[in-house]
Simulated assay, not measured.
Amino acid sequence: MKKGLTIFMVILCIALAGVFIWNRVTSDREAPVIKIQEKDIVYEEGMDESELLEGVTAEDDKDADVTNTLVVESIYPSQDGKTVTIVYAAKDSNNNVGKTKRILNTGDADRADDSQETLGEVSAEQSEENSPEQSPLPEETDPPADHGDQTDEQQAVVDPTAVPKDQQAEIDALQPQQPKFYLKEYQTAIGVGGTLDKLTFVKDIVDDADTFSYLSRRIQIEDNIDVNTPGTYDVKYFVIDTQGNTSNIARLSVTVQ
């Protein structure tokens, strides 16, 4: 009797192992691939999301064409304001998310180039007109005070992936047993009427007992975004683990433009 039960348990374990291996082999873990058709597009502030999605497609190895899931996840400018980086995201039926980036020139860059050309032409004309006569040299004046720190601060572009100082302080103040919630980005922008896949911004949840896989099913999100009204809104993320400990509140700043 015992020998038969042992044989039965061995067969059952082998069967369960086979099912597990089969699920691992056949499960879909590949994210969609996003392709961008080369087009001469100039980014203007307030540009509709549909314009930014023109010529952009997404394909998945299992679901084939998933272009209908494409969204503009975020838009952030370069330090000189002449280009912007567009982040696209698409997902398949198994919620595998694929992303890619695209850099576009801005209308401000074109206007700045035109302005420089115009100034160059005017300066040349003025130089020819004034060449026969020598204008008196201006009196020397003291150079303007150096406000380099202030200028750097005004021109600096905030890294959307960096944890803001106030939120990092909240994380550092947590007790060891409290979960720590992190986002992939802490600021993003969408066009008026656009959509936002909030869960794609979750990067990690660190806990002393529960796994990320488990806690990701307990995520709570609060927001008051009105996608039809331009403005800046906050999306708040937090989680409560199995011991009843609450994480920090991770805040995503969303600009509707």
Rank of each mutant, 00 (worst) to 15 (best):
D223N: 15
K62Y: 07
T161F: 04
G81E: 06
V202P: 02
H147F: 05
L174D: 08
Q134R: 06
Q155T: 15
Q177I: 05
L53P: 02
Q126A: 13
S216V: 10
F181E: 12
N248M: 05
S93C: 01
L70D: 02
D159S: 13
E73S: 15
V10K: 07
V66E: 09
D223P: 02
N68P: 00
K198P: 00
D92F: 08
L183D: 02
N96I: 08
E73D: 13
D108P: 00
E125K: 10
V97F: 13
G191M: 06
V157P: 02
N245L: 11
P176Y: 08
N248W: 02
I205F: 07
T151S: 02
G231P: 04
I75G: 01
N130K: 13
Q177C: 02
V256Q: 03
A109L: 14
I221H: 00
N224M: 08
K180N: 07
S216N: 12
N130I: 08
S115I: 11
S27D: 11
Q155L: 15
D204Q: 14
V235R: 06
D197R: 10
E140Q: 12
D149F: 13
G18V: 12
D40N: 14
M47D: 00
I221L: 04
P136T: 09
K165T: 14
P230M: 09
S135P: 00
N105C: 04
T246Y: 02
Q175A: 14
V25Y: 11
I41E: 11
D223C: 06
I249Y: 09
T211M: 05
Y237F: 14
S115G: 07
T6V: 15
G191K: 03
A89H: 01
S27P: 00
S50A: 11
D223E: 14
